[in-house]
Nucleic acid binder design. Structure first.
Lengths: 229, 229
DNA sequence: TAGATTGTTAATCGATTAACAATC
DNA sequence: TAGATTGTTAATCGATTAACAATC
């Protein structure tokens, strides 16, 4: 119990639990049941207990979980006890917005560098940071302290810029460019694909539309109809 | 075979396949094997063939898939043949960026409305669209044509604004606020949680760090060590 | 002690993967 | 026909869920 493998699906939910616990603590709650915490996060209580069991046991039977204790425990696991440095590369529309996004700082992330090679934007000050040319990456990314690189460049530059991030010592990358990045095995890449999200919503919407209009008229007695929704 | 259930995991990959096929078509390719297409998307060829089999069969044994035909087929399934209307609510940092994001238009999404109730921003023109007060939602969201709502408001307003989107007839919501939205069963919500993405990266990075430093010194002969990475 | 709630077990479900027969 | 590659089968894996014994 402890450092052993936490399933990926569980890891992805830890930030949600953490946020809900912070809200409960703010509300003055000392203790919370798996039922109540699960409800706040929108999952089932069994799933929540299973998830927490992967971190070790921090609940008390008959009572529930200590809000502050569980919060500390999860924050610890997410590495939130020490601040993480973040550099943002590509200060266009999206990079600008990310540079000013308040949600990062409040979760223990420090944006320590903004980079772009566009002659327009280099030198501009965004949210208190001057935009620097990519050549300066090495001056900001210190091999000692872990740094997360956020890629917000146009898709055609993504791989090249990613290579430079990796060369500078970045081993965690959040990629907003809609492309598959090739990286060494020790580099972790996550992708946020905004257009994809809309396409997935569109798929579901179209499926709902088709299912609510087509099946009824075309079905004949005795035919089997696929389950609706 | 056809309109029947496509697994969620497959749906999430369809946009990636579509993009890769567009690139192959641009490059002049007529035909592509599952091996080559899978490589371009960064998945295994077996997974790709399985995914495509859920759409019906469009490949030719011994030859591969017709690039244009498969592209059309997937675009169809994603509802990309008809344009989708998108409204963005909350024109702050992020909303601004999304309003100007080129990736939406190129995938068949039309941003048709920008909304905000901040006195500062209402009336401002962003990317050719005037920001309107939320009260105008009904004038833009037409019950007839499907509209996707993008929520980029501060977390404390998210639920309230979501309710208004739903009341206006929106049944697909992309939520950037870090909160669980309560919606009727016929409304589809997807969530993009930027801070969460960084937290997940931080979790992995910390795990890598712990595993590469701690286990070796503390392990004793005969002890079993958890598998590394 | 009685009531409440956890942590865990076991069953189920969905997704991935490898292998290969079908077939172009 | 011989070589290539699909579509499908079956095995495996990981995640979810319900139920309940352990225990506060």
């Amino acid at each position: 119990m402890g450092t052993v493998d936490v399933p990926e699906a569980t890891v992805a939910r830890l930030p949600q639990y953490l946020r809900a616990l912070a809200a409960l603590a703010d509300a003055g709650l000392r203790t919370v049941s798996s039922e109540a915490l699960a409800e706040a996060v929108g999952v089932g209580s069994a799933k929540l207990r299973k998830d927490l069991s992967h971190l070790g046991s921090y609940g008390t039977r008959g009572v529930g979980y200590d809000v502050a204790g569980l919060h500390r425990q999860i924050a610890d696991r997410l590495g939130q006890t020490t601040p993480w440095n973040v550099v943002i590369v590509g200060i266009g529309n999206l990079g600008h917005a990310l540079a000013g996004y308040g949600g990062f700082a409040s979760r223990g992330f420090r944006v320590v560098g903004l980079f772009d090679d566009g002659t327009q934007v280099v030198g501009e000050v965004v949210n208190g940071l001057r935009v620097r040319p990519l050549a300066d990456l090495g001056a900001v990314v210190r091999p000692g302290e872990p740094t997360i690189g956020v890629l917000a460049v146009p898709v055609e530059h993504a791989q090249g810029v990613c290579d430079r991030l990796v060369a500078a010592g970045v081993t965690s990358v959040l990629n907003f460019a809609p492309t598959v990045l090739r990286v060494p095995a020790d580099v972790d890449v996550r992708k946020v694909d905004l257009a994809s999200e809309l396409q997935i919503l569109a798929f579901h919407a179209q499926r709902r539309a088709v299912r609510s209009s087509v099946p009824a008229p075309t079905a004949t007695v005795g035919e089997r109809i696929g389950e609706v929704v």
